[in-house]
Design a protein around this nucleic acid. Structure first.
Length: 183
DNA sequence: TAAAGGATAATA
DNA sequence: ATTATCCTTTAT
C-alpha cells in the first residue's frame, strides 16, 4: 500500500481536499486493520475562514491545526461524537480537511456516512489527535486501482453561523457514490 | 424538529 | 466558576 507523504498534505487545502476523494483511510489497532475509502470531505481554509475552528486564533484546541501538515485533528462535537480532520498547508496556516464519509473496505462495521459515525466505525478518538498520518498505524494511502471519479461541489454542512463562508462551495464528494452522507 | 451531552472558549 | 456555543446523530 502506497502511503501519502508530507508533500501531499502541504499543498493548497482545496486541492488536497479534492485529491483525498477515493483515497484509503487506514487505522490499525489491536491487530485489526480498519480501512475506508474517502468519499466526502470539507475544506477549512484557515484563520480567515469563519467556519473553521482556527478562525478563533491559536488555542489549546486549535494548535494542532496550526501545526505541521499531515497530522490528524480530532475533536469532540456536541458532547458525543468525534470528528476527524487532516491538517494541510505549511505550518501556521491553520487549514484542514474534514473527513465526512467513508465507503467501507475492510473491518468497518455499521454506518460510515457522516463524520461522527465514521470515527465511531474506525475507532478514532481524541487519543489520535495530533497523530502523524505518516505513521504505521494511522495513515492515508493511495488505492491499488484508482478509477476516474466525478467530483460534486456543495456548501459545507452545519456552518450557518459563518456568514458568507457558509455559502462557499467547500464540500466535495464523489459523484453517484452511495456512501455520501447527504446530497 | 428537538434533545442529548461534554469540551471549549469567553466572561466574571 | 459560570455560561453560551458547537464542522452531529438519533429519536420523536
Amino acid at each position: 500500500m502506497k502511503k501519502l507523504t508530507h508533500d501531499f498534505y502541504v499543498r493548497d487545502t482545496i486541492t488536497v481536499a479534492q485529491d483525498l476523494l477515493g483515497k484509503l483511510l487506514v487505522h490499525r489497532m489491536e491487530s485489526v486493520e480498519r480501512i475506508g475509502r474517502i468519499v466526502e470531505v470539507e475544506a477549512y481554509l484557515g484563520a480567515h475562514d469563519l467556519a473553521a475552528h482556527s478562525s478563533k486564533g491559536i488555542t489549546k484546541r486549535t494548535q494542532v491545526m496550526y501545526g505541521p501538515p499531515g497530522r490528524a485533528y480530532v475533536y469532540l462535537i456536541y458532547g458525543m461524537h468525534h470528528c476527524m480532520n487532516v491538517v494541510t498547508e505549511p505550518e501556521g496556516n491553520g487549514a484542514a480537511v474534514l473527513i465526512r464519509a467513508l465507503e467501507p473496505v475492510a473491518n468497518l462495521p455499521g454506518n460510515t456516512k457522516g463524520p461522527g459515525l465514521l470515527c465511531k466505525a474506525m475507532g478514532i478518538t481524541r487519543e489520535r489527535d495530533a497523530h502523524e498520518l505518516t505513521s504505521d498505524d494511522f495513515f492515508i494511502a493511495e488505492p491499488e486501482t484508482a478509477d476516474r471519479i466525478g467530483i460534486i461541489k456543495r456548501p459545507r454542512i452545519g456552518v450557518d453561523y459563518a456568514g458568507d463562508w457558509a455559502h462557499e462551495l467547500l464540500r466535495f464528494y464523489i459523484e453517484g457514490n452511495a456512501f455520501v452522507s447527504r446530497r
